[in-house]
Amino acid sequence: MGGGIRQLLEQVHRLSRRCLFRVLSMGPLPTHLAFIMDGNRRYAKKRGLEDGSGHKAGFSALMSMLQYCYELGIKYVTVYAFSIDNFRRKPEEVQSLMDLMLEKIKSLLDKESIVHEYGIRVYFIGNLGLLNDQVRAAAEEVMKATAKNSRVVLLVCVAYNSTDEIVQAVKRSCVEKADRDVERIQLVDIEENMQMSVAPEPDILIRSSGETRLSNFLLWQTGNSQLFSPDALWPEIGLRHLVWAILNFQRSHSYLEKKKKQL
């Protein structure tokens, strides 16, 4: 009986979302959403949970958000999973996060995973050389396994910060120019060598837990992005926060488009 009621409620929720998303699609929808998933540790501490429980809850929140984005028809989703600065944390905490990351990356390869269900292509963006061999190998395996998917693109920024991405792009541009015996570097050269060049600039950047800092995330790409900072910790992020962010985007869409054309 309990299982039947649960299935019925899920069907009702799915139908309600479908109706809601149909209404939202009457207006302009973002092509690219970016998330700073802040508050996993605070979520665990707030509820007296074990270390790592907050990040596991955060992964579940991410899977739900990917489902909503797929249903809405949003093409690109970028998440800030692990900053280069996070390597400065206590060694045991970093190792715990690497172990959890390895587990979750491997889970994306399961046939029943949301990646295969929704045809999601996964990119890992960042200085992957900083990851341990197991995590790096798993990330590369996921990228290879999803290379032919095209419905949604998930960009996972790991061992990443924006200044490192810019520095590496400048270095690659210099090497390319030297190989062609060209002295001058153009702006387009740097943009083409950015790892995030596989996706358009984000339309909306959502940072959970009420924080309004960019924390060295997508500094190059978010000059025209709309910022949204709900008070909810990342594991608490839900459908209502996404809907509110999109409604705010739709309300200011014409103004943002005019600003882009002026650049």
Rank of each mutant, 00 (worst) to 15 (best):
G52Q: 02
G52T: 00
G4T: 10
L9Q: 13
A138Q: 03
E103Y: 08
Q67R: 14
G3A: 13
L130P: 02
E192R: 14
I84H: 04
T163Y: 05
Q195F: 13
S215F: 13
L8V: 00
F217D: 01
F35Y: 04
F124W: 10
L263E: 13
G238H: 13
Q221M: 13
S60E: 14
K258Q: 13
R89D: 01
I74V: 15
M196G: 09
L66K: 02
F35G: 01
L62V: 03
L263F: 14
N248L: 11
G210L: 07
R121F: 06
I246G: 05
C157Q: 01
T163I: 07
V153K: 07
L62R: 03
L102R: 11
I74K: 08
E112C: 10
E165D: 04
R172M: 05
I105Y: 01
P235Y: 09
Y43T: 00
F249S: 11
E236P: 05
L9G: 09
Q262L: 08
G210C: 06
G52S: 04
T163S: 06
K260N: 10
G4E: 15
E112G: 09
L219Q: 06
I204G: 07
A232I: 12
P30N: 07
L109D: 10
M26Q: 10
A137N: 07
S215E: 12
L130S: 05
E201R: 12
I114H: 04
V77Q: 10
V198G: 00
V182H: 14
A34N: 00
L227V: 04
Y43S: 00
P235Q: 09
Y118E: 07
K258W: 14
L72S: 01
W234R: 02
N216H: 03
V135M: 09
E93P: 05
L154P: 00
A169K: 03
W244Y: 15
P91Q: 05
I105F: 02
Q168R: 11
Q226K: 14
V79F: 03
K258L: 14
S229H: 07
N161E: 02
Y43L: 00
E201G: 08
S53C: 01
A138P: 04
E71K: 02
Q11T: 05
A57R: 00
L219V: 08
Q7V: 09
G39Y: 02
K177D: 01
L233A: 09
I5N: 07
L130I: 06
S252P: 04
L108E: 09
D110K: 08
L256K: 14
E176Q: 10
I125N: 01
L29S: 06
L109Y: 11
S252R: 15
D179G: 10
E103A: 12
L97E: 00
K261A: 13
R251N: 14
L263C: 12
P230W: 08
Q250F: 10
A199G: 04
A245D: 00
H116E: 04
T222Q: 09
G126H: 03
L102W: 11
I5F: 08
H32N: 03
A178V: 02
S208I: 02
E211M: 14
A159K: 04
G73Q: 01
L219H: 05
R41F: 04
N193T: 06
